[in-house]
Design a protein around this nucleic acid. Structure first.
Length: 107
DNA sequence: GGGTTGACTGTTC
DNA sequence: CGAACAGCCAACC
């Protein structure tokens, strides 16, 4: 099984819910797991990406619409996002407000 | 147990 | 709009 903490599991579970073609922010994910201030910790968690092939961690971006980082490089992340129909310009999601996925199944 | 680090966010200049 | 600061949280040494 996963040698992950409950926190890690919650984050991964939440991120995995993000539909294709949509993106969520670190903050929303944090809020979804009941730790609205744990954005830093989430970044750390995704950086470890214990299930990179199962978790769409590339769909998690910053609150201001910027891409943020990616374990395999921001470039790769942008490429993946574009593949899903998400437009990106100068490291920022253009239609961010339109594809932004709130709620994450929380509440 | 204390200090450092990091895929963050919000405020202020 | 961009840079600097402060706050916050979990993992690592």
């Amino acid at each position: 099984m996963d040698n992950l903490t409950d926190f890690q599991k919650s984050v991964l579970k939440m991120v995995r819910k993000i539909p294709r073609g949509r993106v969520a922010t670190y903050k929303e994910v944090a809020r979804g797991i009941g730790r609205p201030r744990a954005t830093r910790a989430i970044g750390r968690t995704l950086n470890k990406n214990p299930h990179l092939n199962q978790i769409p961690c590339h769909r998690v971006v910053k609150s201001n619409g910027q891409i943020g980082g990616y374990a395999l490089g921001a470039k790769k992340k942008i490429k993946l996002l574009k593949k899903e129909g998400i437009l990106i310009k100068r490291g920022r999601v253009i239609n961010f407000s339109k594809i932004f996925y709130n709620n994450l199944g929380f509440r």
